[in-house]
């Protein structure tokens, strides 16, 4: 009965996260989405603009941590869960959060990054979601990856043209040893030792 409350974005998050969490208990979850459920936001604001009563269901799910709340209810999980909306480097910020949980003793942490293309009304402002996507990673302690924070070179800025999660996946699949993701102010240096 709870599945009907899952939006498209929530279904994408569940689709990548559920198989990874299969059979595991007490896996902390870090949920990352920069823009969240923009279709819901737009529907609620449209009702307000037309002076219509707000849908209680829409309203009850209109917070950024609604997806992890549903995850908690549907899986019967009560362990730590965070919902993060960072800027263009939400992927790295989420990973940092996950690394903190691992450092704190969690044997594994589930990281889910999900974005959905916004309604047309937002498209002049949201230009970093080329298509709907979700990435789920089950993270465990190890030393095959390193991530370091750097500063953007103001005179010669590095620009990454695709979302960091997708760039990361591309670099992983093509066997790269190191690469850089840059935002407006911050850069992230990735290294992978296979």
């Amino acid at each position: 009965m709870h599945r009907r409350r899952l939006s498209r974005l929530a279904r994408m998050a569940f689709a990548v996260g559920w198989p990874l969490a299969d059979g595991l208990r007490d896996v902390p979850l870090v949920f990352v989405s920069r823009h969240g459920e923009t279709p819901r936001t737009f529907a609620i604001l449209s009702d307000l603009a037309e002076e219509q009563p707000l849908s209680p269901t829409q309203f009850s799910l209109s917070v950024h941590n609604a997806v992890i709340g549903l995850w908690s209810i549907m899986r019967g999980e009560t362990c730590e869960m965070s919902a993060i909306a960072a800027s263009a480097d939400g992927f790295e910020q989420g990973l940092l959060e996950a690394a903190g949980l691992l450092h704190d003793g969690a044997p594994a942490v589930l990281l889910i990054i999900v974005e959905e293309q916004p309604p047309a009304a937002y498209r002049d402002w949201v230009d970093d979601v080329p298509f709907d996507y979700a990435l789920g990673l089950l993270l465990t302690p190890g030393n095959s990856w390193s991530l370091a924070l750097g500063k953007q070179d103001a005179t010669n800025p590095v620009v990454v043209s695709e979302p960091h999660a997708l760039s990361w996946l591309r670099n992983l699949l093509t066997g790269q040893a190191g690469w850089t993701h840059a935002g407006k102010r911050r850069t992230w240096h990735w290294q992978h030792k296979p």
């Binding site: 009965m1 009563p53 849908s55 209680p56 269901t57 009850s60």
Partner: peptide
């Protein structure tokens, strides 16, 4: 049927409309 309190509010709104 298994409806909950949020459903009650939503259904009330739908009936009124």
């Amino acid at each position: 049927l298994g409806l909950d309190s949020v459903d009650a509010l939503e259904l009330g709104l739908a009936i009124q409309k």
